[in-house]
Design a protein around this nucleic acid. Sequence first.
DNA 1: AAATTCGCGTCAGATT
DNA 2: AATCTGACGCGAA
Length: 885
Amino acid sequence: MSKERNVRTLDEYMRYDVREKVKSIVESFPSEDRLRSTKVEKALRSWTMGEVVNNNEEVEGYLLDVRYDGRLNRAVAFIVREDGRMARWIDRTDHRPYFLTSATPEDLQRLGLSSEDSERILQMDIVSKFHSIRREKVRLTKIIVNDPLAVRRLRSILGDKGFKFWEADIRYHHNYIFDNLLVPGMRYRAGKRMERVGWDIDPTFLSSVMSITAGESKEYSDMAKELAFLFEQRPPRVKRAAIDVEVYTPEAGKVPDPAKAPYPVVSIALADNEGRVKVLALYREKVKLGGEIPKEVTEVEIFDSERAMLLELMRELERYPVVLTFNGDAFDLPYLYNRMLSLGIEDLYIPIEVHEDMITFRHSLHVDLHKFFSIKALQVYAFGGSYRELRLDSVAEVLLGVGKVKLDEIVSRVSLSKLIEYNARDAMITRDLTTFSNDLVWNLIIMVMRISKLGLEDVTRHQVSAWIRGLMNWEHRRRGWLIPSREELSAGEARSRAMIKDKRYRGAIVLNPPTGLFFNVAVLDYASLYPSIVKNWNLSYETIENPRCGERKKIPEVGYEVCTDIRGITSEIVGLLREFRVKIYKKRAKDSSLPEEQRRWYDTVQSALKVYINASYGVFGNEAFPFYSLPVAESVTAIGRTVLTDTLRVASERSLYIIYGDTDSIFVWDPKKEDLEFLVKYVADMYGLELELDKKFKVVLFGGLKKNYIGVTEKGEVVIKGMVGKKSSTPEFIKNEFKKVVQVLGELEDPESAYRVLEKIRERLLEMYKKVKNRGYTLDELAIRVMLSKDPEKYKKTTPQHVKAARMLQAEGINVTRGNIISYVKTKDSVGVKPVSLAKLSEVDVSKYVEHMRTTFEQMLESFGLEWEEITGQRSLDKILGSHE
DNA sequence: AAATTCGCGTCAGATT
DNA sequence: AATCTGACGCGAA
């Protein structure tokens, strides 16, 4: 199939250059000031602004974000319409930035503000808010100002004079969302104001939701009702394009500085979620055209002018409400922006907005997937820790199972067709990261937007604490509660001592496991223990150590007092999210009577909830979190310890033999069913917690080390925890052999079978020995892969091996930064390490690898009560080692 | 801008 | 030269 190749010269291109058209319109107005007028706005909208909804028009669609527009000095809602276009609805309610203060209007008068500062104040109102800690209504002055920056200025003036202020550090566009109780990701009709549309719910479903709130407060059931809508409304399918930019570089491995944008952009690929893949490429005389272009690439345009190419890209992007990149904040977008500036394109005509920590488009939203996939809570709870390195090809390989197109030469010298193929592939992969498994990632983002009340651009750029903060702030506003200031939250000294130095408070208990093989082991755990504790013990910043409490009870071990007369807000929020997940959506995700598509959505709902729930304890122990409360965090772990200890006590009274336990789990050796049932009932009655049977192991191997065991389930499935043989940094050949040996463990049936299994293991290990000795493994298999947690030059105290290797790479001119995984091998020279890419097999220090093998397998052999030498045979070991010493 | 603590193995570098 | 301690990375929960 021959590809239609559209080669266009600059002259031809300029005939429909929208930029020129826009320019002429702008020039017809007398002064720059007039640019703010509606007429010019309208004229510019298709190019520099995107579509703006007229004052008398209504727009309906999904709210994806809210932004403060500095030129309009108003909040702007980004609403994606049915036809797939992004509409920008400018606030018509005259909402303005503000903050709250203890200073009265008279106080302000007396202060004698400068005329400039006075002008910044539009209005002062006396407002009444509920103070959650003081448990009473308070009257405060609401200072309404003309500009978000004025909040910062006035707050510092008032602060200097000793007045208190609240809610002054909430970003304006967030205030807009919270005050209007908007839910990003949901459907709205925007006319005079934003109205909810299509928030429908099945009445029988709603009543089943309400049943989980039985016996709870009014606030609790109100929240439940609100949330149910968010989980039930199907996610919008939004048109989006991924782009990827290729830049000429004179040297391989050197990424040009986007702030300077010194070299030409040679190719840009765009891949949308409707199958369109377009590449815009620059014609260069010295570059071969090359051969065929893959079928997936639907359009190619070759330009002889870089400027025209970039402008055409901007025009193309205007059709998309959402643009995806991988690393666009740090590279692609600033490069495009600065490159266009240096090519003489005026700022006004570049529809890119540069912000402090992000960069986006004037008329559409930008999702930088590099930022999104670096959200740690997602890595762990949504993607199971599957990818380690935050590079496009690493993430894509794990999640999509595809690799990059291999280039034999650097981008600058490869043939044009090859460059197009390579470029297109990256854009497609970027797009696919949001579309795979039926839009899994996109739907997850939408769900998190709805729970957190943050827009698309915030949700995809901030860690889980920002998500939880958003939800907390929104709920405070909904209730008419004052958002407390940091000083009002009780911090104080920790009352428990951590086990590890440099930690602030004590965490969980880990029992010391025995050594040996244990047949028939039941593993029980408390269903989401920490969130349940937060709920059952009414833990919240305003219910702990609050002198205004009516009734109270003491928290064990740490002795904090918690209110029992009024429900705490965090306790209610965390409790509710947990109930939704456990009682409704986990079940519905597996309900085979529901259509497939619906089940998948419910699975996304429950996994979004999971991320929230699992992070909801940790954030309270994080000082940067606005609702940071050491007593809350400390109480959670203290209660956890007490519950576990007490469960152990009751278990031993029933003659249950507990061999191990960690935080929220207990391993019971050969239990009687009725004893387990007793224990479960005890925990439910005593603490209101659900102790559940998590797994049944045919056999568990313990080597006497905490967080370290191998379990074989009844199906012969092997569960490995903490062992060196499983760690990502362990050389591949050891991991592979370890996997094989562990498979043999699956054959363990009873104590007698252990001998047969051991014999097999011994054979495997000996074989492996010989192979290492003969250098039978490749360099890649021998590589130790460790991540640089900081830039190489930032290691001051010691120089770990992977840093040594990293510096050797730097010396070769290879760019190495924080987050890179360094592959190195151990060598016989005085340094002892070398990056894989620079090493030869003959340089490898075999004895070091033998040691590595020894520790790996000793962790396992320990449980058999055996030493390494015993299983491998002392004599043969000596022979093998001897030949290398 | 950032969820927490507990625990293991490896190595660097200092101390004896 | 042997031993101890802390930094570091990775994992469990």
